[in-house]
Amino acid sequence: MQKDQLFTRRRMLFAGAAALGAAGTAGVLLAGGAEETAGTAAAPAPAHGPQARQTPKSSAFRLQPLTGDGPPRAAPRKLKVRKEPILRISGRGRHMMLTFDDGPDPDYTPHILDTLAKYDVPAMFFLCGECVVDNKELVARMAEEGHAVGNHTWTHPLLTALNRREIRDEMESTSDVIEDCYGERPQWFRAPYGAWNRAAFQLGAEMGMEPMAWTVDTTDWMEPGTDTIIDRVESGAAPGVVVLSHDAGGDRSQTVHAIREWLPHLLESGYHMTVPRRRA
């Protein structure tokens, strides 16, 4: 699928799915932030993605070590199945969490990472597997600079339109490729368009991932203008808030410019940006 086709499909789906996600989302506190309780010739790379998973060759690969001498993938710790995604972070003080969906993208993600590095701020990136395979160096940079990463499926589909096997393939393939370049499997999952269903909650828990939604939507996916994005973040800022932005899926130049303005303003106002601690 070409990049422009993917953007168009996402825009078409979002109009109906955004309302569905908002209607099914309720407040659940996240216990834990960074400061509270609560990274000869070589063989060809293995195939990744939901389609690759349906072939015997891909299944055989999933039983193999990551490298010839490395250990097999560790089984994730299974979690309690939630009925609602997490909306906010808990903890004392003026803590917020910044999240970016749909990447990584070579045109926009590096600029966002540069701004976060300038102010020594961590964020969480919810990654799509199909974008990870072409931008592994950006995922490695996220690990090196202390950012958390989450699973945002392989192709960014509307999960409520898929069967259970298809949802598993989207999620599991993405966790596999993230582990290959980030070094660890993701412990957080976000449904595309915020459209959750029972299977997504159940499968995420089986794979050791908590469901994470958001409190403040910048609506940057609509490209409303840099000033509008800045206003939405600054007016929505409050302790425990989770901010949703995007670093891929369309023209994100407004997002890049906006974060350069609102991030130092929030820091000067006494807010601290945090990400969840990893579970042992």
Results as ranks from 00 to 15, higher is better:
T37C: 05
Q5K: 14
M97S: 03
I112T: 05
M171C: 06
E170T: 06
A123Y: 00
S90K: 15
K118G: 07
P72V: 11
L159G: 10
P211S: 14
I230P: 04
S269F: 11
P157I: 09
G183H: 09
L6M: 09
D69T: 06
M96H: 01
E210P: 02
P211E: 09
G250C: 02
P186F: 03
P157N: 11
T155V: 06
A52H: 03
G39F: 13
L116Y: 00
A22Q: 08
A238P: 06
R278D: 07
K3S: 12
H152P: 01
A205Y: 12
D105K: 01
Y182V: 08
L29D: 12
L30F: 05
V149S: 07
A140Y: 08
P50T: 03
P46H: 05
M222P: 00
E223P: 00
D247E: 04
A148P: 00
V121S: 00
E35M: 03
Y193P: 12
E36L: 13
T37K: 12
D251Q: 07
I86A: 08
F125R: 01
V133Y: 03
N135W: 09
R11W: 15
T228N: 10
A19Y: 09
G32T: 06
A213N: 10
E35R: 09
P71T: 14
P239S: 08
E130M: 08
G21W: 09
F100W: 00
G250T: 01
Y193I: 12
E170K: 02
A60Y: 08
A17L: 13
M209V: 07
T153E: 06
W196G: 11
N135H: 14
P211W: 05
A123N: 00
L127M: 06
E172Q: 13
P104S: 09
